[in-house]
């Protein structure tokens, strides 16, 4: 719970700065060339101001919360989460996703997706090879054919149907 409000502090601090940057950036956007126009910077400036204000309020709120702990009660789910923000599983999934995206256009949709399902399924604890293999083969193939029927060309990569 302590952590919860600390996170809110970081977020509100960050969005406060973001809001300021947005305001500055919007101010230097070009003035309108044409008659009667509101320039492209006015609306985003307004959004920037709103972000700054709400961030400031949130920052104060999170400070209070951190001290007294009465405003926001963490849900039971959150009480369990006491470890690091990114645990190893999540990091590996993200890395796997990055590799998947890189592979996507080169190897084609079907093969990269097969690899993805196998790798991720294994990571998550699937140890029954038969269903895992079946799903990893059938699911991407079915999607590939389905999209093909709809006229969407997915990257075929190194295999050709």
């Amino acid at each position: 719970m302590e952590k919860n409000s600390v996170f809110d502090r970081y977020v509100s601090g960050f969005t406060f700065l973001l809001g300021l940057l947005v305001i500055i950036y919007s101010m230097v956007l070009p003035k309108p060339i044409f008659a009667g126009q509101m320039g492209p910077g006015i609306f985003p400036t307004g959004i920037g101001v709103l972000i700054v204000i709400v961030s400031a309020v949130l920052f104060r709120e999170s400070g209070k919360e951190g001290r007294t702990g009465t405003i926001a009660q963490p849900t039971s789910d959150q009480q369990v989460t006491t470890e690091k923000l990114f645990n190893r599983h999540l990091l590996i999934v993200i890395v796997a996703l990055i590799i998947y995206i890189l592979l996507f256009q080169i190897l084609g949709f079907v093969i990269s997706s097969m690899a993805m399902i196998l790798a991720l399924g294994w990571l998550l604890g699937a140890r029954k090879w038969i269903p895992l293999t079946l799903i990893s083969v059938l699911f991407p193939t079915a999607l590939f054919l389905l999209f093909g029927m709809l006229g969407v060309e997915l990257p075929a990569g190194i295999i050709h149907f």
Binding site: I99, A115, W122
Partner: peptide, 13 residues
């Protein structure tokens, strides 16, 4: 497995 994916990536390139 991740290594395998990397190898695939390299060979594909």
């Amino acid at each position: 497995l991740i290594g395998l994916m990397l190898i695939l990536l390299v060979t594909a390139c």
